Simulated scan of single mutants.
Amino acid sequence: MGINLQKGQKISLAKESGTTLSKIIMGLGWDAKKTGGLLKGMFGGSASESIDLDASCILFDDANKVVDTVWFRQLKSRDGSVTHTGDNRTGEGEGDDEQIIVLLDKIPANVKSLVFTVNSFTGQTFDAVENAYCRIVDGNTRNEIARYTLSAQGSHSAQIMAKVYRHNDDWKMHAIGENANGRTFDNLLPQIVVHL
């Protein structure tokens, strides 16, 4: 089990994993909060509403310009170093609901940071979500390196989760955890640039 990150915390991925990392997986998980009660169920209401949270990864260069994006409309970076495993529109089921696989040793030299975001594409706020988290897993051993519990309560519809960035010859992770609003990562770009 990895470490539980606090908002604003920075870690060295190699130090925490105890090995040189070549592949990491950013996992996102959530559940739709159960709503209503027995009466609602008897009269045709649903026990929970479907919520479509979307994980995205934005690749930035030294000048804080967007180099590429990986999200449900583009599941792979043009260079092939970052892959989204596919869109989950409900949050149902155990484990990660969406995953983004990053081949650290294949990231182009001009890419200095990768920012991971989550957006409620269906527009609900995080008040309607529970058990939300993002985590970094060693892609080779499947060991969890770090986990960040997303603040699920709130009237925001998005969150800038974390940044993975180069520092000297090391990859580090910064748990940003900043609430935001917007249905896709595009809406968050002005807020993201502040953290680069």
Results as ranks from 00 to 15, higher is better:
M1L: 14
G2K: 08
I11L: 07
S12Y: 02
K15S: 15
E16N: 13
G18W: 03
T19L: 11
K23W: 00
D31C: 13
G36P: 01
G36R: 05
L39D: 09
K40I: 13
K40L: 12
G45R: 07
S48V: 10
E49I: 13
S50Y: 03
S50I: 15
I51H: 10
D54V: 09
D54M: 07
F60L: 14
F60C: 11
D61C: 09
A63S: 14
K65P: 05
V66N: 05
V70F: 03
F72G: 10
Q74N: 13
Q74M: 06
Q74C: 10
N88I: 10
G91Y: 02
E94F: 11
I100T: 11
L103P: 03
I107Y: 01
A109P: 10
N110H: 10
N110L: 11
K112P: 02
L114M: 15
F116E: 11
T117H: 06
N119W: 01
F121L: 09
F121T: 13
T125V: 08
T125E: 03
F126P: 09
A128K: 15
E130G: 12
N131V: 05
A132T: 12
Y133S: 14
Y133P: 07
D138Q: 05
D138P: 13
G139H: 07
G139E: 00
T141F: 03
E144G: 14
I145M: 06
S157F: 01
M161Y: 00
M161F: 01
K163C: 09
V164C: 08
H167V: 14
N168K: 11
W171E: 00
H174W: 09
I176P: 02
A180E: 07
N181S: 09
N181P: 01
G182W: 02
T184G: 08
F185T: 12
L189M: 13
I192A: 09
H195W: 04
